[in-house]
Design a protein around this nucleic acid. Structure first.
Length: 310
DNA sequence: TCAAACCTGTAG
DNA sequence: CTACAGGTTTGA
């Protein structure tokens, strides 16, 4: 679910860790660490920067390595308490991890990320990887960065930053949706005969837009999502681009949309309060009052107003 | 070009 | 219990 505004928010929240050294990297769910290097390659490295790349969050290390996180549906970064003897999950769980229950648990103040009971370390369920930190900490002094992912679709890629482009899945993102000129936007959008919504969401065409924002952008632009992309005129493309810029900027200002399981390290977002079409099938169109319609386009739920989206 | 598969929580 | 959700990859 995290799309451009959510990834932007997460990357911004993580910036407080700049200068922290990763003292240990623990893989609790092996498929999450998708290579090419193991997470342990980050041990001893110091965090230099965090930024967004399409829908992905990237943590850049001073030594030239990078951690690229493709959060997919339910991936999230949280602050938590590490423990000196955090057992490497799968194996060598011999030592009874001596230590106190780590206080009231992981997570930031005033925001419980977990739905279930925390584990022995005080972490929420579904933590798939953990990075213990030395130096800058979370807002409440947390000394671990946790990667949590309920459905395990998300992937963490460790590689030299210079190779992120060539990283096969997830690395090869097209130009960011917000970086395209009107010319480029139209050229890319009209490059396919697939439905315009499908093309907008194609990360090899433009990066950052997913189902929620594609739905909202097309509603704002008054374009029907099922329209053939190659039939979108230049003025229509300009409208879509403008709507995209306005909506994505506002969503970033509101820290993204909190639906499903989204949560940035420092708290949720509120843009869902401004959704006008997504998740509102059957309700009256906020523009013309006619019922919003729902259909599946390219396998994804799509909502639009047949009255005012042409 | 499209559908299935990957997963698990939630809604019915 | 089944159906559904969906970003991305993979196979048909």
């Amino acid at each position: 679910m995290p799309e451009l505004p959510e990834a932007e928010t997460i990357a911004a929240d993580l910036r407080i860790l700049a200068g922290a050294t990763i003292t240990a990297a623990v893989t609790l769910h092996p498929p999450t660490a998708a290579g090419p290097l193991p997470l342990s390659a980050l041990e001893g490295e110091r965090i230099a920067s965090t930024y967004r790349r399409g829908k992905c969050v990237v943590i850049g290390l001073e030594g030239g390595l990078a951690l690229l996180a493709s959060l997919r549906m339910t991936g999230q970064f949280l602050f938590g308490r590490g423990e000196a003897g955090t057992p490497p999950a799968g194996e060598a769980a011999g030592r009874p991890a001596a230590g106190k229950p780590a206080g009231p648990g992981a997570g930031s103040p005033g925001a419980r990320p977990a739905a279930g009971p925390p584990d022995a370390r005080g972490w929420p369920p579904h933590v798939r990887a953990a990075f213990l930190l030395d130096g800058p900490r979370g807002p409440a002094g947390e000394d671990a960065l946790l990667y949590r992912d309920i459905r395990t679709f998300g992937r963490l890629y460790v590689a030299p930053a210079a190779e992120l482009d060539r990283l096969h899945p997830a690395g090869a993102a097209a130009a960011d949706a917000l970086s395209l000129s009107e010319d480029d936007f139209h050229r890319r959008l009209s490059s396919s005969r697939a439905p315009v919504k499908t093309v907008m969401m194609d990360q090899s065409v433009m990066g950052g837009i997913g189902n929620i924002y594609a739905t909202e952008i097309l509603f704002a632009a008054g374009i029907s999502p099922g329209r053939t992309a190659s039939g979108i005129s230049r003025p229509e493309s300009d409208r879509i681009r403008r709507a995209a810029r306005e909506i994505l900027a506002e969503a970033i200002a509101r820290r993204g949309s909190t639906v499903e399981n989204y949560r940035a390290p420092l708290g949720p977002g509120t843009y869902q309060e401004l959704h006008r079409a997504y998740g509102r099938a059957g309700l009256p169109c906020p523009r013309c009052g006619r019922p919003l319609q729902r259909a599946v386009i390219a396998g994804r739920g799509t909502v639009w107003c047949p009255g005012c989206q042409k």
